[in-house]
Design a binder for these strands. Structure first.
Lengths: 344, 344
DNA sequence: TTGTAGGCGTTATCAA
DNA sequence: TTGATAACGCCTACAA
């Protein structure tokens, strides 16, 4: 254990220190450091050696101010609490880092004022672009992008925004295919535990569910739709309410995997077996889905691709290119063991 | 859908634009904006109004360069893939934001070179402090802190470091109390699925497990220790190997909850019931633990407190105060349904 | 191939 | 109470 260290802000090594040591001008040092062609190899080598020896680290701050480019982007997410949200950071950060960008991360908690303030802060930091996951600013986004003159890419906005630069999964299609899977298994009493009605994904997935029923001539029964919270709690409460129905469902299309986790839990509490008595389909395919009991059949959303497309889109915009946009990624049904044919 | 927008980098509004509009000097504008006392209230009001109207947003970059303070910190984590890692971001970001700080987030993937490079990048960005979660730089940390002159706070380092500013859970104590709980339930054949041996938490928890056995006169059997990977895979493989033993264990202390998830899965595959045939204790108490089947008994680690202490420690250091350090947080046993008394 | 000078947007230090 | 003027550390013309 070291004793109470006093961390003293040792003076940074700057280029003019190097210039003095090397007996050249600032410009020359700058040239060497950014390996420009117009400098004598020997001079460069000498300067580099000195810089190395002095432990010089360029000041990104000063560079940003002078060069007008900060090589930073801002990433606003709703929260870090669930697996889906957490996973999205990875591809974005990796890509950013590979391109020499650093990323500011902030949370907006699905509150408009908070999100606005986060974006404003990013702007004050001169980020070159922003990615907002689960944005709640809706139509304000295009205007903000316009007024700040900085590209904004949205991933799965919570509030529908006619913003061009958006990347999202095919919510409607995914929920529809999940529901159709249950129909193929012979189920007719199929329930849905959704996300709050004010969220776009919540509505879209609900629509997908309804469309599947309609397409197969199954009457729509509002009793079978429960508004959850996209978390375990909603799933657990929802399934218990649905199971208490006179004509209880035999299958369940969940808003997401977290909801499904709650459903499995709630079903267990009521002594209902999955999949024997109740078939369950999730949405997302979070890493844990395959380890649940039973392993969860779900609609996979490729989070890595989501993030990858978003960051590529952003970098295209930063480079002044017009990317293909918007992007809607298809989902895929992953069959595991939480669904069974309906027993007549 | 808006048409192909050309995002043009609209010129930023700067203070000298405001100065011109207001017919005052730069200095005066600066004073108004930072509401200093030495300015006439009317002047201030007028300037503020103009700034507002022009949509002025201060340039944090320029401020940083001039004022020597960037109000940023760097946060390096191993990855965002698991719940534990993801959760740690929240308290840190919240606290930072509340103090007017912005945070750079990067991943180091438990690779020393990568971590070093991340910290170096933070340094080049002039962060005022850094938090490293699951650091693998060990003894290099104090030296780095010294040479950069910037405080570094470690959370649960993977490699043991005699760094003063460290916050971690009581790994040894937690694993020991979990194991003792199993002993109290009457178990004698208690296995352990640990993390890789090169990690400090892995070794500490293993020690805790061994200490519990010793204290209760239970002979130590190397056969009962399996080196996992702190993930589901390790748990699943581990439990299957352990269950195949001639004298199989009746209880299992896991390195963490993810491992336990794999254990539950593996046990199911082998048709072994939890807790009837096998008692399982996890570590961490991730949000999902209570929703597992059976709900997982585990050693809770207060992640929020971990992050909270770390960020407070960092801000104290930034403010030039010497914080109480290091900090080791006690864990608490959470009894749920994955453990049962041993049946003779 | 190298150096000089000006500027990036603010804050800080003096004077006035 | 206000205003010049010099940093902050670096980059980019433009000259030499």
């Amino acid at each position: 254990m070291t004793g109470p260290t006093t961390i003293r802000q040792s003076r940074r090594v700057t280029i003019d220190r190097i210039a003095r040591e090397a007996g050249v001008s600032l410009t020359t040092v700058s040239r060497a450091l950014n390996d420009r062609p117009d400098i004598h190899p020997d001079t460069r080598a000498r300067i580099l050696a000195i810089a190395q020896e002095l432990g010089y680290t360029p000041s990104a701050i000063a560079r940003s101010l002078a060069g007008q480019r900060t090589h930073t982007i801002g990433l606003a997410v709703r929260t870090h609490l669930d697996a889906w949200a957490a996973q999205i950071l990875l591809p974005i950060e990796e890509a950013a880092r590979d391109s020499g960008y650093e990323v500011f991360v902030s949370t907006h908690h699905a509150e408009a004022e908070r999100e606005r303030s986060v974006l404003r802060t990013f702007y004050s930091r001169h980020v070159e672009g922003m990615v907002v996951v689960s944005s709640v600013l809706g139509e304000d986004i295009p205007a903000l992008q316009e007024s700040m003159g900085i590209p904004i890419v949205l991933i799965s906005p919570l509030i529908q925004a006619s913003h061009r630069y958006t990347v999202q999964a095919h919510d409607y299609g995914g929920a529809r295919s999940g529901t159709e899977y249950l129909i193929r298994l012979g189920h007719r009493r199929i329930a849905h535990i959704g996300a709050p009605e004010w969220t776009a994904p919540g509505r879209d997935r609900l629509q997908g569910y309804r469309a599947a029923l309609e397409a197969h001539g199954i009457p729509w029964d509002p009793e079978l739709v429960f508004e959850g919270d996209a978390h375990e709690t909603g799933g657990s409460e929802g399934v218990q309410a649905l199971l208490a129905l006179a004509d209880a469902p035999t299958a369940l299309m969940c808003f997401n995997d977290l909801t499904a986790v709650g459903v499995l839990h709630g079903a267990r509490i009521r002594g209902v077996r999955v999949p024997e008595d109740l078939s369950v389909v999730g949405f997302d395919d979070v890493p844990l889905a395959k380890y649940l009991d039973p392993p969860l059949s779900t609609i996979r959303q490729d989070v890595e691709a989501l993030g990858g497309h978003a960051i590529r889109m952003l970098f295209a915009l930063i480079a002044g290119r017009e990317p293909q946009a918007p992007i809607v990624l298809d989902t895929v049904l992953v069959e595991r063991l939480s669904c069974a044919p309906r027993v007549a």
